[in-house]
Design a protein around this nucleic acid. Structure first.
Lengths: 342, 342
DNA sequence: CTTATTAAGTTAAACAATTAAGAAAAGACT
DNA sequence: AGTCTTTTCTTAATTGTTTAACTTAATAAG
C-alpha cells in the first residue's frame, strides 16, 4: 500500500490538514504535535506530500525548464553552451529548483509544460514551432542570446562588439572574408550570396555580421556576401570545409572574421596546412574568448563573453520575476592572430 | 480563465470523459465526434489534458531522471559523461520520454521522485545519502558503472580490461606508479598509502585497480600503495598535480598506469616539461579511449569503452523493464605511449 | 418482432494533496 | 464568572484528469 497524507493521518488519528500543515506551515500547530507527526512519518517511511498532487493544487512544481535551441547532444558537447548550463544550474541548485533540460528540437513544449514553472531559453531559435510554443506560453520565459516578443532577455551587445573588433583590426586595402554560424536556414556549409538570412532579433550571429558591416562601411572597404560563409554547426567538419573554401578565393583574403573561436582555430590550421603564416599572410579573428583560443599559438583576437555569468544572471532574472532585460558587458581581446591596427 | 477538460466539455455540451477519450482512446467514440472535439480544442487553444493531473491519476509521468553522481557541472564538461548522456537522450527522444537531469550532489531524490517514472544512474555513488535514496526507491532503477543491490546494471569488465593491459605492457624490473581517480573519499590529490578505498561494488576505478594488481602479482612485480595516487576529479589541475608528484619519486618510475586518458595526456605533458621522452624514458597507459588520446602524439595505449553505447543500452534496459544486468564489451588499444611488451 | 450484441456516451469515484472557513479548546482580561 | 482572543485542529471544497461501471441507442441475428 502506498503511503499518503490520508493514510498517515488515519494512523495518527488526526486530520489530513494537520499533517499537511506539519510539512508546510509549522506555525499552524503545536510544536509537540508537529514533532510527533514528523517522527511518525519518518518511522513509516513517508517522505512528504506527493509533488504531483501538490503541484496540481498549488499550480507550482519547483522545476525550471532550460530549453536548448539546439539538441541536447549539441549543448553537451559545446563548451560555450555547457558553461551556460553550468552557471544556471548553480543558481537553481541554490534556490532549490530542479532543472529540466529540454531539447529545442522537440518542436513543442506541451509534454513538459505542466511540469515546469518557467522557461530559460538559450540559443538562436531557428525553429518556428518552438518560437510559437514559447510565445503562447502562460509561464514566465527568459531568453538568452535572442529576443522574443516582450519576454525579458539577456544578451551581450553583439553588434557593438564585432564593430569595435573590426574597426580596430581593419586596414585600408584589406581583402575580407567572414565565416558565419547559422546565418541562414541551411544544413550545409556554403556561401551566403543573396540567401535570406535570419532576422537580427532572433540571430546573434546576424547581429555580429551587422557590426562587421558597419565597421567595413565606415572604413570604405567593399564587402559582398559572396565572401560570406555560413556553417550550420559549430563543429570541426563544417569549420574546416568553410576554411578550405575561403582559402581557394583568388586573390586570397588577408583577413578573416570568424563568428566563433572554434572556427578561427580550425581556420588557422587549414591555413597552415597550405603553408600560410598567421598573422603575416592572413589575419584571423574569433569570437567567444574560449580557453582554447587563448592557449593556442598564436592566441586569438576575439570577443570574450562570460558564458557562466550568462547562466547565472539569466537564471536569477527568471526566478526574480522581473520584466527587465539585461545587456551584459563583453571584452575585446587582441591576440597574436590579428594584431590591433595602429 | 484556464482551459481544462471540464471547460472544454461544457463548451461542447459533452461529458469530460468523452473529451478525455478523444485524446487518449480514439476507439471509444465516433470519428466525427472526435474530429469535432479536436477541432474545437485547437480553436480554443486547449493543448490537451494537463500532465500533472494525468500523472496523479495514472501514476506515470513520461519523464525519466538521469542521475549524475557527480554534479551536473562536471558531467557537462566531461567528455565521457556527456557522451553517455548523448546516447541515453537519443533513446528517450525516440521513445517520447522526457529527460530530467539530476545532480547526484543533491543528496535526496524526494524533490523529483514524484515527477519521474524511473532512474538512470551514472557514475560512482560515493554519496551515501544518494545510495540510500535509490535503494528505497519504488521506481525502476538502472545503474551504470556501478552495482546497487539487485537493480539491473550496465558495466564493462573493468578489472579484466586493466588486467589485460597491464599483463601485456609490463616488463620484468619495471618501476610502477598508478594514478587513480576517486579511489578514496577525499577532495584532494594525494597518495593512497593505507587509506580505506571505496568498495569495488561501488567504484569502477577500484575495480580497475584490482585488475592491475592481479597482473602485477602474476608478473612478480612489487606494488605498494605509496606509489598509488588518487585524484578527486578528472580535470587538468588534479591530473597535473599528481603527475608532478609521481615524477619526483626516486628512482623514477618507468611505467605509469592512469585511470583516464585525460590523466595520461597531462602526465605526458608533465613528463615532457621535465625533458623526459615517452615512451623511451617512461611509458604511459590511459583508460577510456577518447578521441584526444588517439589524436595525440604519441597516441595512447588505453582501454576503449563506448560511452555512447552505454547510454543507449542502459536507457533501453530501463525502459524495457528487464531485470537483467549487462556487461558491455571493451577494446584494448596499443598506442605509442606504451608499446606491447613482446 | 423479439432478443442479443455492439457502439457511443455519461456518471461518478478515485488520484493525493492544499486551503479557506469554521469549531473547539485554551488563555487572557475585566 | 463572563467575554474576548488566540491557538490548535477539523471540515469540506477544490485542483484537472482517468477509468470502471453503467445507460442508452443503434444494429444484427434469429
Amino acid at each position: 500500500m502506498n503511503l499518503t497524507l490520508k493514510s498517515v493521518a488515519q494512523e495518527l488519528g488526526v486530520s489530513t490538514a494537520t499533517i499537511s500543515n506539519a510539512f508546510n506551515k509549522p506555525d499552524q500547530l503545536s510544536v509537540k504535535r508537529r514533532e510527533e507527526i514528523l517522527a511518525k512519518c519518518e518511522e513509516l517511511g513517508y517522505s512528504g506530500p506527493n509533488k504531483a498532487a501538490r503541484s496540481l493544487r498549488r499550480g507550482k512544481t519547483g522545476i525550471i525548464a532550460v530549453v536548448l535551441v539546439d539538441s541536447i547532444q549539441y549543448v553537451v558537447s559545446d563548451a560555450i553552451a555547457s558553461t551556460f548550463v553550468k552557471g544556471a544550474s548553480r543558481v537553481f541548485e541554490e534556490q532549490q529548483q530542479q532543472l529540466l533540460l529540454v531539447s529545442g528540437s522537440s518542436n513543442d513544449l506541451s509534454s513538459v509544460n505542466d511540469f515546469v514553472d518557467g522557461y530559460l531559453c538559450y540559443g538562436s531559435p531557428t525553429n518556428g514551432n518552438l518560437v510559437n510554443a514559447l510565445k503562447n506560453s502562460t509561464k514566465p520565459v527568459v531568453t538568452v542570446d535572442f529576443n522574443l516578443g516582450n519576454f525579458p532577455s539577456l544578451n551581450i551587445d553583439n553588434s557593438a562588439a564585432t564593430q569595435v573588433v573590426a574597426q580596430q583590426t581593419l586596414k585600408k586595402g584589406d581583402r575580407i572574408a567572414v565565416i558565419g554560424l547559422r546565418l541562414i536556414d541551411s544544413p550545409v556549409t556554403c556561401r551566403v550570396y543573396d540567401t535570406k538570412m535570419y532576422e537580427p532579433e532572433i540571430s546573434i550571429t546576424r547581429r555580429r555580421l551587422q557590426g562587421y558591416e558597419t565597421a567595413f562601411a565606415a572604413a570604405d572597404v567593399i564587402f559582398d556576401y559572396d565572401h560570406l560563409w555560413s556553417i550550420p554547426e559549430n563543429i570541426e567538419t563544417h569549420a574546416m570545409r568553410a576554411a578550405k573554401e575561403v582559402l581557394t578565393i583568388s586573390p586570397r583574403p588577408n583577413i578573416v572574421y570568424c563568428m566563433s573561436d572554434l572556427i578561427a582555430l580550425y581556420f588557422i590550421r587549414a591555413a597552415r596546412d597550405q603553408g600560410l603564416r598567421v598573422p603575416e599572410d592572413i589575419r584571423v579573428v574569433g569570437f567567444d574568448g574560449t580557453k582554447e583560443g587563448q592557449r593556442y599559438q598564436p592566441n586569438l583576437t576575439t570577443v570574450l563573453q562570460n558564458s557562466e555569468e550568462k547562466g547565472v544572471k539569466s537564471a536569477e532574472l527568471l526566478l526574480s520575476g522581473s520584466a527587465e532585460s539585461i545587456i551584459l558587458p563583453h571584452d575585446v581581446i587582441f591576440g597574436e592572430s590579428c594584431p590591433k591596427a595602429s
